[in-house]
Write a protein that binds this DNA or RNA. Structure first.
Lengths: 210, 210
DNA sequence: GACTCGACCAAGCGCGCGCTAGGGCGCGCT
DNA sequence: AGCGCGCCCTAGCGCGCGCTTGGTCGAGTC
């Protein structure tokens, strides 16, 4: 490594390149990957389209860089909060907060992940998406199952189903969540957790099965 | 109207046209609208790309026909189950079942709606999407608020937030739900309703607020 | 038998896309 | 002063896209 004493041991990428990834991310998030042209990305970056190819060898590698970076950071974050949690319910709470936190700090990346995952994951180049999603599932399901075993969480619904439910409900709220609005990510997380843990019904509700 | 005595009073469209809409829907759902070419749609229909333009005047009008039809039917379905319900909780249960039912009968349309809504709604031509989504929200929120007022549902979370949470969690399950799998739509609906109404926590769980 | 009409074919146009090749320019290092 | 290199420009290639135009064919109607 010849990145000098001030850089970390992670691979060095130019600041300009990271900046362009962020610009592309915003466009991908708002109009979709396929509907975003390299000319639009270049315009937004203040350069010509050809100049993008000094930093990337294709449009695909822009979205790849974006998603690799995001998934790596969210995975590290999940591991951190699980390690620091006192018990499974606490871990679950912190996981939900972490996911909503990502909604604020990485809004564009979450939107791109949500919108383009199904398309991209079909190609070998983006197999890492599938790996990362599976790894997250392993972490969440582990927390849920521990909670079910020790009786803190109800065990009559499969942990994997609960996880899918949660993940989707959280990620998809990127569609309407506005970071400049009145609600902080932690507020939304608490709202979700309230419904998730205690349920919508009151004690007067009859538990009929239809 | 000159559609003959056997057709309903709804606008007549040729059977072939409807068939092609269905074929296009599958492609739009699996690879995205922008990534589906008119040549692929024509191939799947067994004709040449130019021949599509006998039935439609553009690729856009195919997705428009698909979504108009779907939204009209789901709206009618929502109204039907609300009118037939005995109380708000019953209505909520039936709404959830209806939404999951649409997942089975109109999988492609739901997927297209989920994936392309944000893009399409920006164009005046697709303003009807926004109208229809607002109408659905009105219906669901009405049910939720009635339930909150009469004490059957907890009232400390805004009805609109609960609705968004529910809608998203249900629709997005089109990403993993397999109609040919072991789970019937009603099974999944019951699983969702269990968590939704009663919550994940058991009585031993402490209700800490972080 | 003449006519209509819905369904499709044959051939290809023009545009905008992702991407390329080669060159210019200034900053920092020696 | 000279050089290397990171960054960007100029100019444009070729392909695949949505869509068009004019025509063919067969079933139904009187």
């Amino acid at each position: 490594m010849t990145t000098g004493p001030l850089t970390s041991d992670t691979e060095f990428v130019s600041a300009r390149r990271s900046e362009i990834v962020g610009i592309a991310a915003e466009l991908f998030a708002s109009k979709g990957y396929a509907n975003t042209t390299v000319r639009e990305i270049a315009d937004a970056a203040g350069i010509l389209s050809g100049s993008l190819y000094h930093h990337f060898d294709s449009k695909e590698s822009m979205i790849e860089a974006l998603l690799r970076d995001f998934l790596e950071r969210i995975d590290a974050q999940y591991r951190r909060v699980i390690a620091a949690a006192a018990d499974p319910v606490d871990a679950l709470r912190e996981l939900v907060h972490a996911a909503f936190g990502a909604l604020a700090t990485d809004r564009a990346a979450v939107a791109v992940m949500l919108n383009e995952y199904n398309l991209l994951v079909q190609y070998p180049r983006f197999a890492f998406l599938h790996d990362s999603v599976e790894e997250s599932e392993r972490l969440w399901v582990g927390v849920l199952e521990t909670g079910m075993r020790n009786g803190a969480l109800r065990a009559d619904v499969p942990a994997a189903a609960v996880y899918r439910f949660l993940r989707d409900a959280i990620w998809v709220s990127v569609r309407w969540y506005r970071p400049d609005g009145p609600q902080r990510p932690d507020d939304v997380a608490e709202e979700y957790l309230t419904v998730l843990l205690s349920g919508l019904a009151t004690s007067t509700t009859t538990g009929r099965t239809r």
